[in-house]
């Protein structure tokens, strides 16, 4: 049985193909303004990369914010349930997940079967999300991909106290004006994300081992900040960004 998972997030769209409980492949594209198109495009792309035709796919599950706009999917499942299934597939020992995506962050507690036990999400505000980091990268004129490594060179972590993205940006700008080192400011930004996510995670009783998923997991600085806040090592898979799509494809394989 071959199944597909399509995860259309606010910033990127991801696809994964699973065959008999094995990951065949995955890919990521930018969502752009049309989530429906993005779902189609990412699906076509993975099919062509794997030299598969649509008719070979038995079941498809859509997830993420655009989940209900993917008409070719058999079912829509939330990314919370999908990330749980994906993390369990990648590492069955995992009991908690921190997922930081484009417009929200989540803490999820799961059981040994990869079933969600409890979860919490950030409220409407975008602070502590991928979009927040994008805004900061622009203010600092640094490529977002360099954020992680740069923050590890900090010698004195700057303090960013505001919870609001816009206010935090002005804090960053005033730190730049004061001549604070970029590395320290970036480390401060990561620490502020860490504090926010920690409060959310502690509320639902996050337990080790913890895995971080979502696009922001690629940022080593955020991972380190979270490890410090939670005082536990955080496991990051190379498939972190496509974990939701993997979970969706796995759940699709249980559809009859």
């Amino acid at each position: 049985m071959i199944t597909a998972g399509i995860d259309v997030g606010s910033i990127s769209a991801k696809a994964a193909i699973i065959k008999d409980h094995e990951l065949l492949g995955s890919c990521v594209i930018l969502t752009g303004y049309n989530s429906r198109n993005a779902g189609r495009q990412v699906f076509d792309r993975i099919l062509s990369e794997l030299h598969l035709s649509e008719s070979q796919i038995d079941k498809i599950i859509a997830t993420g914010y655009g989940r209900n706009s993917i008409e070719f999917a058999d079912k829509a499942v939330t990314e919370i349930t999908c990330h749980a299934a994906g993390a369990n597939f990648l590492n069955p020992e995992i009991r908690s997940i921190i997922d930081i995506g484009g417009q929200d962050s989540k803490a999820i507690v799961i059981n040994d079967k990869g079933k969600v036990q409890d979860f919490s999400m950030n409220d409407k505000c975008a602070a502590g999300t991928g979009r927040f980091l994008e805004v900061m990268a622009r203010a600092l004129e640094v490529d977002l991909d360099a954020f992680g490594e740069l923050s590890l060179q900090a010698d004195n972590i700057a303090s960013i106290s505001s919870l609001c993205t816009v206010f935090a940006e002005s804090e960053v700008i005033s730190l730049i004006a004061k001549g604070e080192k970029r590395e320290n400011i970036i480390a401060g930004i990561h620490a502020s994300i860490g504090s926010r996510v920690m409060a959310m995670g502690k509320r639902i009783g996050i337990t080790s081992p913890v895995m971080m998923t979502g696009g922001v997991a690629k940022n080593i600085g955020v991972v380190k900040a979270l490890e410090e806040k939670f005082n536990t090592p955080i496991i990051v898979s190379t498939h972190a960004q496509v974990n939701g799509a993997i979970g969706a494809a796995l759940i699709a394989s249980t559809l009859s």
Binding site: Y65, T78, I80, T81, K115, V116
Partner: peptide, 30 residues
């Protein structure tokens, strides 16, 4: 299981549909 939805009784500006929808859907899946 319990679910927390952030909103307001009369001020619609404090309601985000897709946020609330994802939470309710995930809660039911749970």
């Amino acid at each position: 299981p319990t679910l927390m939805i952030e909103a307001d009784m009369s001020d619609e500006r404090n309601f985000s549909e897709s946020q609330v929808e994802t939470r309710i859907d995930a809660f039911i899946e749970m």
